[in-house]
């Protein structure tokens, strides 16, 4: 919400479908297997494309599988107890078939990631500067001495004041916003073509959130980096993403270009998410309309719509037949009874 109100005039360049996708995720499934327990499928066949320079949002509430999706793309899920299937093709290579060694060479160099909590994502015992040079040494084969001025420039680039001094500072000496800037600098150190941001602003206060989002937007536009934005915050999506995928219960329920999606949410879940956001133009004293229930109420996707128990307008078929992700008025939607009225 912050981002919408602070930067309503800037628009990211939508370049949807203009070229070969940089990242193409097809039928990604992640199953958690625990001994003596039923396997749990956290991601149930997610497919989406990210084109070079494009910003794609993965939106959903806690437990919808968005973070697991990102970890699966990065190959960061522990091998034990997790089964990942489908294809994640990056620039023509299927990342899921790569060896650990090959994947390590790609991570940080071709694909980088920014995590949610900037303090715990930085190593507390190493100065910031060394954490930046570490990536440069690793992927660009630079010496620490050669990498230090580069690291300094990177910190400067992400808007950290007095970068020379900050190089020798430890993470706990930086403010939350500075830490997240440092993490972004580390992620972008090797100029990856794809950046995955997993709730990069959740741990920050609202004013800093807006700054970080503006910074991400600027960097992504300047460098032509594709960005996958994982968030539960529709305000973030509205300010940043070209295309939005709404996830529910491990599946994509609706996909659309950001303006279309916000103007005309078709899925009752998307509609509910938007309706539960406080609006500046709403009459004073008006109550928010939350989505009732929680993810725990989900029905299994196999023979129903998982969202049906919480839906505002379920029909009889919703609890019997799984809706498919099919184009509805030009954009993919997984719903038997779409919302028709316009907001």
């Amino acid at each position: 919400m912050t981002s919408t109100s602070t930067s309503p005039s800037t628009h990211p360049h939508g370049r949807t479908g203009s070229s070969e996708p940089l990242l193409s995720v097809r039928d990604l499934r992640v199953t958690f297997q625990r001994q003596g327990q039923e396997p749990f499928e956290a991601v149930q066949g997610v497919s989406f494309d990210v084109h070079p320079g494009q910003t794609v949002g993965l939106v959903g509430e806690s437990g919808c599988g968005k973070s697991v999706t990102s970890l699966a793309i990065m190959g960061l899920l522990p091998a034990r107890g997790n089964r990942v299937s489908g294809t994640v093709s990056y620039d023509g290579t299927d990342l899921l078939t790569l060896s650990d060694q090959q994947m390590r060479d790609k991570r940080g160099k071709d694909i980088a990631m920014v995590f949610q909590d900037p303090l715990s994502s930085l190593n507390p015992v190493i100065p910031i500067g060394l954490q930046v040079t570490e990536v440069l040494e690793r992927h660009r084969g630079m010496s620490r001495k050669a990498a230090t001025p580069v690291a300094r420039d990177l910190l400067d680039r992400v808007g950290i004041p007095d970068p020379d001094r900050r190089l020798t500072d430890y993470p706990h000496q930086l403010s939350g916003g500075m830490r997240q800037r440092a993490l972004i600098a580390i992620a972008l150190a090797c100029q990856p073509r794809l950046l995955i941001a997993d709730e990069p602003t959740t741990a920050l206060d609202v004013t800093i959130q807006a700054q970080i989002l503006a910074l991400l937007k600027e960097l992504v536009q300047d460098t032509g980096t594709a960005l996958v934005m994982i968030t539960h915050d529709l305000g973030v999506v509205a300010g940043l993403c070209d295309e939005v995928n709404v996830l529910y219960g491990g599946r994509i329920v609706e996909r659309g270009e950001r303006h279309e999606l916000f103007a005309q949410p078709r899925h009752p879940y998307t509609h509910g998410l938007l309706a539960s956001i406080p609006r500046l133009d709403a009459p004073r004293g008006q109550r928010l309309t939350p989505i009732p229930g929680s993810v725990a109420d989900n029905l299994p996707w196999t023979h129903a719509c998982a969202f049906a128990p919480r839906c505002s307008q379920p029909i009889e078929v919703c609890t019997r037949v799984m809706p498919e992700l099919v184009p509805h008025e030009g954009r993919p939607l997984r719903c038997h009874n779409p919302v028709e009225e316009s907001r």
Binding site: M74, L76, M103, R104, D105, K106, R107, G108, K109, A112, M113, F115, D117, S120, S121, L122, N123, P124, E134, V135, R138, H139, L183, I186, A187
Partner: peptide
């Protein structure tokens, strides 16, 4: 299982490091 080790792995840092 800490976040900063996950972050380091996400950067492709080698296991010894």
């Amino acid at each position: 299982s800490s976040d900063h080790v996950l972050a380091a792995r996400a950067l492709g840092v080698k296991p010894q490091a």
